[in-house]
Design a protein around this nucleic acid. Structure first.
Lengths: 350, 350
DNA sequence: ATGAAAGCGCTAACAA
DNA sequence: TTGTTAGCGCTTTCAT
């Protein structure tokens, strides 16, 4: 029925333990033996049983991806991360389990235990905002399960992947400033996401560098959702001196801003420039297409998982890899209305 | 360290086998014994080892969700399905693995084998268009692994969940007809998705019932993507008699139509009515909000998974559950321009 | 309705 | 560099 390790051993004329060594890439196997065993495995179509390995040994070749289920980023973002993690798993013959966590539930720890200790999970990929949720990290450490983080706030002794979001946000706001905007508003996301703070800091940096005093009237709290973007924008529109440009901390909220602008009869970008962050598919599906910062989510998922596996396979300790951002300047931003309403070529493309 | 079944047995004063019986809900256990064991499990915080169960027994309490990786529906749709499946897993103490499949790869079967046979997967949730991909279904059957389908084309002997998409599509087109539209175009999705055909049939039904001859000029092939919606719409706009309404087979393509309309300077809905299908988050994020058919993706994922588990737990054979659709009439549709351009109240809301 | 023994397929600790 | 002996924690016989 099933080809077992023992069958391979018999076919090769070595002991089961030696086959096991080859399987686990242990160094102390003679090269010729290794080749023989490998050939037999291949020809017999041998595939080890994860259950048996998990039960007998300390590894399961299983990683889990954790995300926050009631306070998460856009589902398109998570889906891309997930695809990237799966890419990496594929490359290293790991399997992936997915685990949504509700941080508010007290049953939270039980879920982590159930996953990590029951399934002998080898390692975990943590997505925002769980990356910095102390009770989770503590529990993982207690279990001795290593993790890689996507965009963690705290970089100390953490592996995974990050981006210089503050610099990216500054570059984006610099772009608005160059276009003559002075009254630039910022819509923040949830405070427990590093993204909210980094992007706010980038905004502040750019404004300060341009010699514009920070004005809290132009900074509104949002929740990373489309609806919160609508509400924040409505609020900004009622100001005595409404902004000529709005920088929303993510694309979903930026879409909400554009929606609210439509509602109010404001033309984007003629009356109002709008930009977001992440470059989710939504950004190019809006009209006009949204100026934003590209965050390579799929690559980030893959890189984080690769760092984790590097560590798991004892190949190294894993790194916190920094990926580059890139500005996506599209048609939702234009020169400020009062300054110089240049009517440039503005034909949108997909 | 770990609380084992044996520990529970000792604490309760019964044999390990009896504890096992309770764990597996076997009928032949005296109720009082059952309660005692259950209480001990609870108080000792006993959780069985999936590896050990998988190795020793025939079940793994693991289900896998399969999706097509290079020809899939919108990621928001899949993400919702996935959340629904996880809900159901949670309720029945199953774990879920996720497996993207590339149908074109010849390595396809190997991946199914790796998942299903290596991990002793108990059952599989299959999403469109894999639901009707014969080589996959055949392989699953060879492995003796049951599956539940989301919106399968073939309903024979299949369990899972479906919707009467043809009727829904007809109702949607009926709505357009009632508004006085006569030149209504349809943008199809990939042909291997049942959704493409059902929705086309619904379109045909409605047109026929209204006494309008089927005109292939108004039916364009798309690919379920935003970009293909743009291209299809551009093509329709060049017709001598362009449509006054366009029904796209999903929301993403409908968004593409609205984008192309903007590009061409057409006002939606004054010059052109647009509707989609699925009611993804995008539908309410567009301006104007999109008229579409609500497909309760999360519920569908959950229901399909519940049917599968029903079957796995020997509680029954599982059903093909039909979920109701509902029309979401929003501001992207309005009376046809030539007939009677009624300027009704048209204030959009979130 | 319950229990005793054997073993699932692999790895750990030790030995050679 | 390789082999031997015990288990991992559970379910399967088969017995009572």
């Amino acid at each position: 029925m099933r080809v077992r390790l023992e069958d391979v051993a018999r076919a090769t004329g070595v002991s089961p333990k030696t086959v096991s060594r080859v399987l686990n890439e242990e160094p102390s196997v003679k090269e010729s033996t290794r080749q023989k065993v490998l050939a037999a495995m291949e020809s017999m179509n041998y595939r080890p049983s994860p259950s048996a390995r998990g039960l007998a040994g300390s590894r399961s070749f299983l990683v889990a991806m954790l995300y926050d289920n009631n306070d998460n980023p856009a589902s398109t973002y998570l889906a891309e991360i997930q695809d990237g993690v799966l890419d990496a798993c594929d490359a290293h013959r790991y399997s992936m389990m997915v685990c949504p966590l509700r941080v508010r539930d007290q049953d939270f720890i039980r879920r982590v235990d159930a996953l990590v200790s029951d399934h002998h999970i080898d390692g975990v990929i943590v997505t925002p905002p769980l990356t910095d949720y102390a009770p989770l990290l503590k529990r993982l450490q207690e279990h001795g399960v290593p993790h890689a983080s996507i965009s963690p706030v705290n970089h100390e002794g953490v592996i995974g992947v990050c981006m210089d979001e503050q610099k990216a946000a500054k570059a984006l706001v610099d772009h608005l400033l160059q276009q003559g905007h002075r009254r630039i508003a910022y819509i923040a996301g949830f405070a427990n996401h590093g993204a909210s703070r980094w992007r706010l800091n980038g905004y502040k940096d750019a404004m300060a560098a341009a010699g514009i005093a920070y004005d809290p009237k132009y900074v509104v709290q949002g929740e990373f959702t489309f609806g919160s973007g609508v509400l924040a924008a409505r609020q900004l529109f009622t100001l005595a001196e409404p902004p000529t440009a709005i920088f929303a901390a993510n694309d979903d909220m930026a879409a909400g801003v554009m929606w609210a602008a439509n509602e109010r009869g404001l033309k984007v970008p003629q009356d109002l420039s709008v930009c977001g962050f992440d470059d989710t598919p939504l950004a190019t599906q809006l009209w006009p297409p949204l100026t934003t910062v590209r965050q390579p989510a799929r690559d980030m998922g893959k890189l984080a998982a690769l760092q984790l596996m590097e560590l798991l396979r004892g190949r190294g300790t894993g790194l916190l890899v920094q990926v580059p951002y890139s500005l996506q300047l599209r048609e939702s931003t234009a020169p400020a209305p009062r300054e110089a309403p240049v009517k440039g070529r503005r034909k949108a493309r997909i």
